[in-house]
Design a protein around this nucleic acid. Structure first.
Length: 889
RNA sequence: GCCCGCUUAGCUCAGUGGUAGAGCACUCGCUUCACACGCGAGGGGUCAGUAGUUCGAAUCUACUAGCGGGCACCA
């Protein structure tokens, strides 16, 4: 058998995925057990424009670990993949491509443009689906969905019509966030509020029939052209007499009132506020309260309108600002300008400064939906957030929820299913035909706007399963088991899915929500395109392998973590360790094969021990994965495989396994070794799918699949995940092995401290009066081998030459290594005294504890007894050690 | 302004009431017949600070400091 010394991840990553996918292993139909429990996840659909980043890789790893684990546990599993049409991003991307050809989308017209987007999607969209295959994501591609496909679009229209008919969707003129660059409205959640160093301008407005002026402070002087009032606080004595008076608005011929409103903070600025209802959300509200006119002075391109006055018409908003300030200065009405830091709203996508504008848009009332979600949390504590802290984030946001602006002035997206007659009457319907029937005319024009991208995403958990039809998939897989996502879309997506699920299916869309942490760069900064500090997961795959990267990501869990390449490297080394352990097993496998039954039969101590450790690990691993304790899960695997299996079991079994002569015992040793390895590969598989499959395929024997997958072509993917059988956990064997491990470690420690050459063999004398005596006796050959002893003598009472290095172990076992001529008595005495001091220090602590009457009376008796037992053990070791030191004199 | 999270070994992070852990880095020794991406042996932390609860606190409570994030913003 020819097996390279180094594991080559790329080689293993090349062919297994294609086979898994082709054989239908990812589809729930592979499970032939009609009674199988169900596990389902819908993927957070990545943008069709997107390519894989660390956040995806993290989420996908966790989802894949859970899916593969549950699949191996015999669940009917579905991990449903898909993509989001990503309205603005996609439209921008295609528009940019057109621009290179010197064209705009308007040159093409709507229909041609949308065709062009589809063409782009077919040719170069969905890069991420290729990358997900590289990740090893075991998603069911046969059920892949895209939010703009006809089936999902139909769901969008269905939901829109139902909500409209219930009066929850309405169209109205309101102040909204407008992006002058993208020429569309945005929801509050698509707007970033960023701190900005700016100026605060103090403008003086003359009062009619008076010499007085009132000074207002503003960060946006250009909006004064649209002022329709000045407001002061009703309790502000400075301005009490001005309320009801009239201001002569400079640069215009308009006269505007001074009104009183509690909203005004007397402490800020001058205590008098200019009111521009058409261009500021707060002023808009105040305008409604005081029935003020709305004068629109800024248009959708952020240029000044005719109402701004002839001198301003067509000016950009910032040019207009300069000009207003200049003119105020010329008029002697500019009181002062001070530096001022405030926050500014920018478009999440293009970073253009948002212009608040009054605009005719579609909105959704959220009250009823919000109450559904809040009631579910109050009543049933669902969904369960992990970590729990996000529950508060979720409910706090819901409690302050406002209407959702759902229309967008884009071409790429779900066109709003509303049609208008020439008279302007609106008919909302599932199709043009239905609208015609409702309207009684064919002369209909569809609303040109499309819906917010999240309007399709919020339906994702059930639209992908066939709703509104009562499909088998919907019945089987809804509600899904868990949603895995990052915290930044708890509002945008998670909460809305809960509301939609409750409203339309009558059940929550998922039981649990697992919120992942964020992978930061090595400096602790968030990775972003603009900062150019992102680490490409594909680069990590290429450099260290997919499996090593997955382990690194899996152990991140839900706290933010800096990307640490050293960590990936150490898991690359772990993969190599697995490879070489398997290599050893395979190189010594002649005459043997995997045989699970052998683990049920009792063998030597180290055999019973590894079976116990295996089951122990399996039990803890199952618990860890079920509780989303992925870090714990990775640690369990790492230490079981490296420490228990490689460092101890292989070494203890080595003599038997590598025996030159064929024998029944050699075959048995080899069979046990191969079988334990096979079980270990199963445990590792959800985390490290490629290396485990690669090695598993090479193991000899008729390897069994989980009974639910009987008849499938063999793959480790479909074997039964070790459950951790209680009757195979052998605490006595673990304790006995622990004694042997400690013994060997102490001898090695002596060798190291005494500078004994590794090649030099030494005699070892063990005195073990207690029950460990037969344990050591039975393991004599193994001990001898692992400490490189010339002979191991096991006695009742220690009889060793004076010139020996010694140690006293827990339980009173004594150890001597005769070192005639090599030992420095003074040095040895000091070494033993250091040991003695350590024991004394520990004893002193424990004695103090026992000396506290409150501890004895209030601590659990079990705990008190533990302390007493430990003290007794220390006392024994200590006195033996003392004797040893005295004998050296 | 309000809310949340974090602060543990040089670095990156686990650990949620009972004697401080891992990986990497570091020191010493090893071409020991699976693996130098390795083997063996070590050193290293008053768990951010203060006060409290408790027989007992890295772990629970309060406050403080620093860092990070979210929400709301006063023009």
């Amino acid at each position: 058998m020819d097996i390279p010394k180094q594991y080559d991840p790329k080689q293993a990553e090349q062919h297994h995925y294609e086979r898994w996918e082709r054989n239908g292993y990812f589809a729930p139909e592979i499970n032939k057990n009609a009674q199988a429990p169900v596990f389902s996840i819908v993927i957070p659909p990545p943008n069709v424009t997107g390519s894989l980043h660390m956040g995806h890789a993290l989420q996908h790893t966790l989802m894949d670990v859970m899916t593969r684990h549950k699949r191996m546990c015999g669940f009917r599993t579905l991990w449903l993949p898909g993509m989001d049409h990503a309205g603005i991003s996609t439209q921008l991307m295609v528009s940019r491509a057109l621009k290179k050809e010197g064209k705009s989308r308007h040159d093409l017209g709507r229909e041609k443009f949308v065709e062009r987007v589809w063409q782009w999607k077919h040719e170069s969209g969905g890069q991420i689906t290729v990358q997900m295959r590289r990740e090893g994501a075991s998603v069911d591609w046969s059920r892949e969905k895209f939010t703009m496909n006809e089936d999902l679009s139909r769901v969008v229209r269905e939901v829109f019509v139902r909500l409209y008919d219930e009066g929850m969707i309405y169209r109205g003129n309101r102040i909204v966030n407008w992006c002058p660059q993208d020429q569309t409205v945005l929801s509050d959640l698509e707007v970033d509020k960023l701190p900005q160093a700016g100026k605060l301008y103090y403008l003086q407005y003359p009062i009619k029939n008076s010499d007085r002026r009132v000074t207002v402070a503003t960060t946006r002087p250009e909006t004064m052209l649209g002022d329709t009032a000045v407001a002061v606080n009703p309790n502000d004595d400075r301005y009490r007499d001005l309320v009801g008076q009239t201001v002569l608005l400079p640069l215009t011929d308009r006269e505007i009132p001074i009104v009183a409103d509690e909203y005004v903070d007397p402490e800020f600025g001058t205590g008098a506020v200019k009111i521009t209802p058409a261009h500021d959300p707060n002023d808009y509200e105040m305008g409604l309260r005081h029935d003020l006119p709305q004068v629109v002075v800024i248009d959708p391109h952020a240029k000044m309108t005719a109402d701004a006055g002839p001198g301003f018409l067509g000016l950009d908003r910032y040019k207009a600002r300069e000009k207003v300030v200049e003119e105020f200065e010329a008029l002697g009405l500019l009181e002062k300008v001070v530096d001022y830091e405030f926050s500014i709203s920018k478009c999440e996508r293009c970073k253009t400064v948002i212009e608040p504008l009054i605009s005719l848009q579609w909105f959704m009332k959220m009250d009823q939906l919000r109450d559904l979600a809040l009631d579910l949390m109050a009543r049933e504590q669902k969904p369960r957030f992990v970590p729990e802290t996000y529950k508060k984030v979720y409910t706090d946001w819901l409690e302050n929820l406002r209407d959702w602006t759902i229309s967008r002035q884009l071409w790429w997206g779900h066109q709003i299913p509303a049609w208008y007659t020439p008279q302007g009457d609106v008919f909302v319907a599932r199709s043009k035909e239905e609208a015609r029937a409702k309207a009684g005319t064919n002369e209909l024009t569809q609303d040109p706007d499309v819906l917010d991208t999240w309007f399709s995403s919020w339906l994702w958990p059930f639209s992908t399963l066939g709703w509104p039809n009562e499909t088998d998939d919907l019945k089987t897989f809804y509600p899904t088991s868990v949603l895995v996502t990052a915290r930044d879309i708890i509002f945008l997506w998670v909460s809305r899915m809960v509301m939609a699920g409750l409203k339309f299916v009558g059940k929550e869309p998922f039981a649990d929500v697992f919120i992942t942490g964020t992978i930061l760069d090595s400096q602790g900064q968030i990775m972003s395109k603009t900062k150019m500090n992102g680490v490409d997961p594909i680069d990590a795959f290429d450099k260290f392998g997919v499996d090593a990267t997955r382990l690194t990501l899996a152990q991140v869990g839900s706290t933010d973590t800096r990307w640490n390449e050293k960590q990936v490297e150490s898991y690359r080394n772990f993969a190599n360790k697995i490879w070489n352990a398997a290599r050893f097993c395979l190189l010594n496998s002649e005459g043997a094969e995997v045989k699970p039954e052998i683990l049920e039969t009792s063998g030597a101590l180290h055999d019973r021990w590894i079976v116990s450790r295996l089951n122990h690990t399996a039990r803890d691993l199952n618990t860890a994965i079920d509780n989303y304790e992925f870090h714990q899960a990775v640690q369990l695997l790492y230490h079981f495989f490296w420490d228990d299996f490689c460092d101890w079991y292989i070494e203890l079994a080595k003599a038997d396994v590598t025996a030159e002569q064929e024998s029944a015992s050699r075959t048995e040793a080899r069979t046990r070794l191969l079988t334990v390895l096979e079980q270990a590969l199963r445990l590792l598989h959800p985390f490290m799918p490629y290396i485990t499959e690669e090695l598993w395929q090479r193991l000899p024997g008729d390897k069994q699949l989980h009974e639910a997958y009987a008849g499938a072509e063999p793959t480790v993917m479909l074997t039964a995940f070790p459950e951790g059988k209680a009757d195979l956990i052998d605490e006595a064997a673990e304790a006995e092995m622990q004694a042997i491990i400690e013994l060997i470690s102490r001898v090695r420690n002596i060798r190291s401290e005494m500078n004994i050459k590794p090649t030099e063999r030494i005699p070892v004398i063990i005195a073990s009066p207690d029950r460990n005596h037969p344990v050591f006796a039975a393991a004599r050959e193994q001990i001898s081998r692992l400490v490189r002893a010339s002979e191991v003598s096991i006695q009742q009472h220690l009889e060793a030459p004076r010139a020996s290095a010694r140690a006293v172990l827990a339980g009173g076992t004594e150890l001597a290594v005769p070192l005639e001529g090599l030992i420095d008595f003074e040095q040895e005495r000091r070494r033993l005294q250091r040991e003695q001091e350590k024991l004394q220090a520990e004893a002193a602590k424990l004695e103090a504890q026992l000396g506290n009457p409150n501890f004895v009376s209030r601590a659990p008796a079990e705990r008190v007894n533990e302390v007493r037992a430990r003290i007794a053990d220390i006392a024994q070791q200590s006195s033996q050690l003392q004797q040893t030191v005295e004998n050296l004199q």
